[in-house]
Design a protein around this nucleic acid. Structure first.
Lengths: 314, 314
DNA sequence: ATTTATTGTGAGTAATATTCACATAAAACG
DNA sequence: CGTTTTATGTGAATATTACTCACAATAAAT
């Protein structure tokens, strides 16, 4: 448990400011001036990093130097590292450590179709707390990515080092444009053109299992992204499996209907944090807001609820 | 020009691995084991950072330690910094510095409505080059954010330290759902309900100036995001000013029409890089692809083009 | 050819990082 | 309740390293 050795290959950290300044100025002498050192110190610092990495960072041509490809790569990471640390120190001096920025990692489709349209409301309610939204899917490394919280669909094992707080259980069901539901109800779902997404190829199977349906598709079409399949459904191209959060606003606005209702897929959406949300007031604020916004997300849109459009009973 | 002193407040960098390990283990002794040092070395490293910052990083209670708020903030930056550097070193060792990841910073609305739907195509065409997309608006600091390129609407002064490459000139015009254009043409634009976005409050004025229109709104409505106003237009709530990239796909799919055509707004969309795109093969690849995808973006959708729906002549 | 601007380097020195040994403190244990 | 165990803090000695200085080397600028 305690011998989680993180084996890193780090350059000599103390030499990084010298390297960064030298790269910025493309000159060891200017870097020396900036840092109030001698050019020899810069030269040795750079040489030290090069020795450690076994790669040349600069191309030296008599009166000027410039970065090699390796140097460019290291500069990118170095600048990010130094600026990030500088920002942290400033935050600490100004706000005693409580950063007024909450960095949220969210899956792209959920962010686009659910979170972003609502973030304006959060900003209005909490003008002091800025949300920095990053789109990313799959396993998350909060520390490495510098994120405070992540929102994920818990369809994979989430590292035990994190605290996961359940947000809502995912419900999903076939969605199509309002004009097509009669067609579907007249016969059955097998009349429909099924829209698939390669990012979640089992969506239809999961739904069939959850709802006990035995339907097969009349025709099928594949898209690269879930987002795209849903857009196609809005655009009357067929019927897609819509997870509730991603189609919530479309259902509410009448752009889509879910004539067969929604069934739980067995997956939860969770909030991933390093510590329990209550420990960080920013996170607890965000969490409370999320839960309030998601009030009608968790079973509230099952058959019997009027959000679904007219054909909610199968 | 050369005396751009970047005044940073950095913690003692060499002490950071000790701090990070101590924070991770919540124990100085475990950290010492991991780093093959004595607990005294860890204690002094942490104390050194605390002295420099003038803040306590750990709460010491006899047999355990945990982070203060300031410590948590510094840990976030430190982890990100060390992991970022580690990644750079690994890239350098594996690929001699050429990272197989291209980090792209893009404005959220453009990313959502134009870039993301196309990225799948890029990934298929270039499976070796992964795109890491970050949503951010306004001024960009490529180095600080660790981004290779940024895509921006050049509506503000862009720092001279960057190379800006023009992508296309923005065209914009009123867009509404296909059923409403007859209403508009029957009278004029003043019959319409104008949809505004607080993120670009001058959009209608800019268009009126560009097109010479003197119209005024029959009624108006405000939204928090451009994205939202456009969604409202799709949803038949009124007429919004649609910049071509953001409504391109909606026009093409017939969800929206632009009965009065598009006029240049005077703003360019640009690619922002540290060096000319040709110098980095990843960037030049991405740039070429962008230009190919944007083939019909630059004036190609002006009145007279059939992309606009039936009412393209005013 | 001389000057100028730049980086590399050996040797000495200044600074600092690390250890060792001991001090301290409170929980755990019998 | 005393003893042991597990932690961290710290003074002094020591090992390491970072930095400077002075000089070397190089090639462009004059």
């Amino acid at each position: 448990m305690s011998n989680i050795h993180i084996k890193r290959h780090l350059p000599p950290l103390a030499a990084l400011p010298a390297f960064e300044a030298a790269a910025r100025h493309q000159s060891f002498s200017r870097a020396a001036e900036e840092l109030h050192l001698t050019h020899g110190a810069i030269s040795r610092a750079v040489a030290q990093i090069e020795d450690r990495l076994g790669v040349e960072l600069f191309v030296r041509r008599n009166r000027r130097v410039w970065l090699t490809a390796a140097g460019e790569r290291l500069l990118k990471a170095t600048s990010a590292a130094l600026n990030g640390l500088d920002g942290a120190v400033e935050d600490i001096h100004r706000h005693d450590g409580a950063s007024p920025i909450l960095t949220v990692s969210c899956e792209p489709s959920l962010a686009m179709r659910w979170l972003m349209p609502r973030l304006g409301g959060f900003r209005e309610a909490n003008p002091d707390l800025n949300i920095d939204l990053r789109l990313a899917g799959g396993p998350v490394d909060l520390l490495a990515d510098g994120c405070d919280v992540a929102i994920r669909r818990a369809d994979y094992g989430i590292s035990e080092q994190y605290i996961t707080t359940r947000l809502w259980a995912e419900h999903a069901g076939p969605v199509c444009d309002p004009d097509c539901w009669e067609t579907i109800l007249a016969g059955n779902l097998s009349n429909a053109r099924w829209l698939h997404a390669r990012t979640r190829p089992d969506a239809w199977d999961v739904w069939k299992r959850a709802s006990g349906s035995e339907a097969t598709a009349a025709s099928e079409q594949y898209f690269d992204h879930f987002f795209f399949a849903l857009q196609a459904a809005v655009n009357r191209l067929g019927t897609a499996i819509g997870p509730l959060p991603l189609v919530h606003d479309d259902l509410k606005a009448g752009r889509l209907i879910a004539p067969l209702g929604m069934a739980p897929t067995g997956y939860d959406y969770v909030l991933i944090t390093l510590d329990p949300p209550v420990r960080d007031p920013r996170i607890s604020l965000f969490f409370e807001w999320l839960m309030a916004e998601a009030g009608d997300m968790d079973g509230g849109a099952l058959p019997g609820n009027d959000m679904m459009g007219p054909g909610k009973k199968i």
